[in-house]
């Protein structure tokens, strides 16, 4: 596949994922699977930007790994705070400040 086709497909995929996320925001009710889906979509979109638009696949490992790690930060925290929200709140309570 050519670079041009990869970019075109990536953009289409990103737009479809964005609209899917928007539909979830409009109609979905809170729940584990919807939270997991939102986190997964966010992670996929981030990875597409990093690998296809930024083309960091063959960049310095320090740059590639740092940016990929950043792309996983928010999706991971979405899942963690859903699963362990009350426990995390006890550890980092704003009331102590």
């Amino acid at each position: 596949m050519t670079n041009k086709k990869r970019l075109n497909l990536s953009w289409v995929f990103l737009m479809v994922l964005t609209l899917s996320g928007a539909l979830m925001g409009e109609y979905a009710h809170p729940g584990f699977w919807i939270t997991l889906s939102i986190a997964f979509i966010t992670a996929i979109k981030g990875r597409l930007i990093i690998d296809e638009f930024m083309q960091l696949g063959d960049a310095s490992p320090a740059i590639r790994r740092t940016v990929r790690l950043f792309g996983l930060l928010v999706p991971s925290l979405i899942i963690l705070t859903w699963m362990f929200g009350p426990e995390l709140a006890r550890w980092i309570s704003l009331a102590t400040f």
């Binding site: 996320g21 928007a22 979830m24 979905a28 979109k45 981030g46 930024m54 940016v67 950043f70 979405i78």
Partner: peptide, 21 residues
């Protein structure tokens, strides 16, 4: 690279404020 990074950050902001119930 800067512009894509700024795009990446928005992709993280979007679900937090507009989507995540």
């Amino acid at each position: 690279s800067y512009w894509h990074a700024t795009d990446l950050i928005w992709l993280m902001i979007f679900p937090l404020f507009y989507v995540l119930p």
